[in-house]
């Protein structure tokens, strides 16, 4: 009976997720480029051999992981603080709640274009400010060691509201009685945060982490518009590299290989994270 009820959902997942994955897996064992007339021709795993020795792919994988881990960590910390603040009762809270959601509501390409102008050298306001302070040119979008931080910043600005929203919903699900009881037992507000709020919020934190990690690992539009993967490839992500292989180099076999490899890396990362959390006992509240 359970299976029967779950069948529509499983079918949907199979169609929109399972089939493309299988198709990618199949394509990754074929050459499908202009050299083959854009028709798939089996190439005996040559794509995977190429991937293993492809410095650009591994560099991009490292950069993508760095981007995802750092921006999601920052977003979580910020979102927790904002959610706690927005959960308190104060005048004008409704308006502020609506305002904090605004960055999330903006299309990514629009906001990336906006940041590109703001950080532009030499005409952007940041650059003008730096010059008037006598700091000289910052070249924020053309310095490989700095530009990736700009992409992190833009991502944090844009998606913190998303985590805030989930955490706020979580906070509202915690019964007020628990806090009253805790206070009655002589607990301080800080202790309440550690002993009541955080443990009960944990499922929401983990859920948003999962969502955001998967999303950040597949980052494409933000990087494509803000930096185009530059300078010198320092902000290129796996998804962007897969796009370039397909759309610019017209090598669809290798593009599928890159995309699939990115998916496998993400899965491995999440699996490792889950095992780690399990080993320290953090996942127990989820097993209810």
């Amino acid at each position: 009976m359970t299976m029967l009820l779950a069948a529509p959902a499983l079918l949907l997942i199979a169609v929109v997720f399972g089939w493309p994955m299988l198709r990618y897996a199949w394509l990754s064992f074929h050459a499908d480029s202009v050299l083959t007339g854009l028709e798939p021709v089996a190439n005996g795993g040559a794509n995977w051999l190429r991937l293993a020795a492809d410095q650009r792919f591994w560099l991009d994988a490292g950069q993508t992981a760095r981007f995802a881990l750092i921006s999601v960590s920052l977003e979580l910390l910020l979102a927790l603080a904002i959610a706690l603040l927005l959960h308190q009762r104060w005048r004008g809270r409704g308006a502020v709640r609506a305002l904090t959601l605004l960055p999330w509501a903006l299309p990514t390409t629009m906001m990336a274009l906006g940041w590109r102008w703001i950080f532009n050298t030499p005409y952007g306001p940041i650059e003008v400010l730096a010059r008037s302070l006598g700091l000289g040119s910052l070249d924020l979008l053309s310095t490989p060691s700095i530009t990736w931080l700009v992409t992190v910043f833009a991502d944090v600005w844009k998606t913190t509201p998303f985590i805030t929203l989930i955490l706020l919903a979580g906070l509202q699900s915690i019964p007020e009685d628990l806090y009253s009881a805790f206070r009655l037992e002589g607990g301080t507000p800080l202790q309440a945060l550690r002993r009541v709020t955080l443990p009960l919020l944990l499922p929401y934190i983990l859920l948003s982490l999962l969502f955001r990690l998967a999303q950040a690992f597949g980052v494409f539009d933000l990087v494509q518009v803000l930096t185009g993967g530059g300078p010198a490839g320092s902000t290129e992500s796996i998804a962007l590299y897969a796009y370039l292989n397909g759309m610019r180099f017209l090598d669809f076999g290798y593009s599928a290989t890159v995309m699939l490899a990115g998916f496998l890396l993400l899965t491995a990362m999440i699996l490792a994270g889950t095992l780690l959390l399990k080993s320290v006992g953090l996942l127990r509240p989820l097993d209810r």
Binding site: A31, D32, S33, L35, T36, V41, N43, A46, N47, L49, R50, A53, D54, D251, G253, Y254
Partner: peptide, 10 residues
Amino acid sequence: RSQTLLRAAG
């Protein structure tokens, strides 16, 4: 690396 690339692209 160039040869591997050529082979992979068919």
